[in-house]
């Protein structure tokens, strides 16, 4: 029986299908690699939630930044809110060294402000427009998502889901170091 080609054909088909399903079940369908990583960050123009101060990609030229998309209705955004604030207090006090930016999506200014107040966010916060232009330009699947952009304006890393202390510790020093690289 072991010599029969039919036996080995059946083994090959079953083996192939098992490998395919095992590989499929082992992947989170949401973790799709972004084509934007290692490419220039898409442009954006926003205004600060409280002060109305404008901010655009052009105005950040030469400054690395962490761009976090969040929403007041998002549970995972609560988990990372204080982490991002800590990162801002630790690395983002000098705006020429690093900027930490939060953009609320599919939200209202009032809800976004209340969320920021509740979780003690003091870094630059803005609201995406109703059309969601910034979210779509950054290829968002949901919130939270965070982009780490170096001094040359290249997206170096994208975090899907809440950021972790490990991710911040690993990515932010690299962004800051990119200022000195030719």
């Amino acid at each position: 029986m072991l010599k029969s080609w039919k036996f080995w054909a059946v083994v090959a088909v079953i083996g192939g299908l098992t490998a395919m399903f095992a590989s499929g079940f082992g992947h989170d369908p949401k973790l799709v690699p972004s084509p934007l990583v290692h490419r220039p960050a898409p442009g954006f123009k926003v205004t600060e939630l409280n002060t109305g101060a404008p901010l655009s990609l052009e105005s950040l030229k030469g400054t690395p930044f962490v761009l976090n998309f969040f929403a007041s209705w998002c549970v995972a955004c609560r988990d990372e809110a204080r982490l991002l604030e800590s990162a801002y207090l630790r690395w983002g006090q000098d705006p020429s060294k690093l900027r930490v930016i939060g953009i609320a999506i599919q939200d209202t200014p009032e809800a976004a402000r209340a969320f920021a107040k509740r979780y003690g966010k003091t870094y630059y916060l803005a609201l995406d427009d109703a059309a969601g232009d910034v979210s779509l330009n950054y290829g968002l699947y949901g919130v939270p998502e965070t982009f780490f952009v170096d001094a040359k304006g290249i997206i170096r890393y994208k975090q899907i889901g809440a950021v972790t202390p490990e991710v911040l510790e690993e990515q932010i020093p690299k962004l800051i170091a990119s200022r000195e690289q030719p």
Partner: peptide, 13 residues
Amino acid sequence: ASFSQQIRAKVRR
């Protein structure tokens, strides 16, 4: 879904 609504509006534009 909200994202789909935004994508539809963007496609229309």
